[in-house]
Design a binder for these strands. Structure first.
Lengths: 251, 251
DNA sequence: CATGTCAAGATTTTCGAAAATCTCTTTCTG
DNA sequence: CAGAAAGAGATTTTCGAAAATCTTGACATG
């Protein structure tokens, strides 16, 4: 029930790593998942060195599967590999966050256009239910801003909503890029949890986008989507200044 | 001289794997490069099983660096990993080629817009010289259609031209995706070498795009670019029918 | 005092063999 | 004869130790 993704609509194209329910059958795969998760959730902090001995103990694997996992995650940019010097959790760069956000805006606009043209019944249904879940999660969060579990739940629902928007476009490559970018975006968003006093629950915007999409109104949907991204980016860049003042004051 | 890429304009963002001149200092990195190259050039054929014993001999490495290399290339989609069953060269799917082409059109349009807005002197100069090299390579190819070396040279110049177009946009993430997609596109293009009687040298189109970009005429540049992609896609889809007839007749 | 060299220790990378999993054939059963 | 079960062989995955590379700090040199 939790996994709406069914089987991949096509049997070609790049594979998505975010199907969190299907457990990999190899150690390397399992560790890659854990690494991604821990990095996105800041269990491993930006810039941190990833030494084999430590990670070996942490994940209870030998060096071979560990290295393989690190290379997988490095290909996605969440960790950085330097020959003969080891691996490092990708550092935080506010400019990069903006880059990721802009690119996401462009890619999701492309996707939503395709989905509005080609999306079938399944797409509509999944989108509707994804939004509903997102709304419920938003209500839960606003009831208790401090509950980390609820925020995490909201993050997952938020991702699935945007994914549901894009899914109808029928482009496996786009969905692949969506996946990679979203991981980074989520990491950045979580970075600000510490500083933001409130979660930015823009359910109104989400609903408007969804309705435009279901009305098959391409221009309206895209405009709303772009506005959504711009607003989020603006909000986050305000936080950025706040963070920079905070870290400057601390030193 | 050959490498125009200088240092990456930013020191954040995902790393590009196509800087072919800088030799990796580890075996795993070297083998990853070789694998990519061999797959793109069809030294390893689509769908082929990649067994460790064979590859170990071929590239003269042990299993550890080999696996690491395979995972790197798998993350890019050029090979496919299946747990406990091994690795396979990604099969050819014409629908995927179309997907890649459409996405490239969208991404490069996004990039060219950014480059026209933000591109500096370096961008203009690099673009100009990239085009000139492309033109020369095109002349060399048309002098001898069968010369594989010249075609390969043209492929490299073609990639560099499109890369030069995008480079000014200042988005490392976009350039990263460009890279990944271009590898796939090149593999598909080379797949048709066998069937196409002539290389499609659309230098006129390239020149027009470049001029529009240097004139900082966003709309004109994007329109020409989109037309360029559409034309190429159309040409290739015609070849597709031809290939499908040919392979159907063969069986 | 700045700078370069070298060795010891720490860390990463690679190898080769052991363990785990899959594949294919054979055999058994209904 | 169809289909399930079992075992041998092939292949992938994982481990642990050896080899290669990097880092640090002491020492020498200009």
């Amino acid at each position: 029930m939790r996994n709406m993704s069914k089987q991949p609509a096509h049997r070609w194209g790049p594979s998505l790593h975010s199907s969190r329910d299907e457990t990999p059958k190899t150690l390397a795969g399992r560790v890659a998942q854990q690494l991604r998760r821990d990095i996105i959730r800041h269990q491993l902090t930006p810039g941190e060195r990833l030494q084999f001995e430590k990670l070996s103990k942490r994940y209870e694997v030998g060096t071979s599967p560990l290295r393989e996992a690190l290379f997988q995650v490095a290909a996605q940019g969440l960790v950085i590999a330097e020959d003969h010097k080891g691996f490092v959790v990708a550092p935080i760069h506010f400019d990069e966050m903006l880059d990721v956000s802009n690119l996401r805006a462009n890619l999701e606009a492309y996707a939503i256009r395709g989905a509005i043209r080609d999306g079938h019944e399944d797409w509509e249904v999944d989108l509707l239910s994804a939004f509903h879940r997102l709304k419920l999660a938003g209500i839960a969060v606003s009831a208790d801003q401090e509950d980390e579990g609820r925020r995490t739940e909201w993050e997952d629902r938020h991702r699935e909503f945007h994914y549901a928007l894009c899914k109808g476009c029928g482009s496996p490559w786009l969905l692949h890029f969506f996946d990679e970018l979203y991981d980074h975006m989520e990491r950045y968003r979580r970075y600000f949890w510490k500083y933001a006093e409130r979660a930015v629950a823009a359910d109104g915007e989400h609903e408007a986008i969804m309705k435009a999409a279901l009305d098959r109104d391409e221009e309206r949907a895209v405009n709303l989507l772009q506005a959504h991204f711009q607003k989020q980016a603006r909000l986050t860049m305000n936080l950025r200044k706040k963070v920079e003042r905070a870290t400057a004051a601390a030193s």
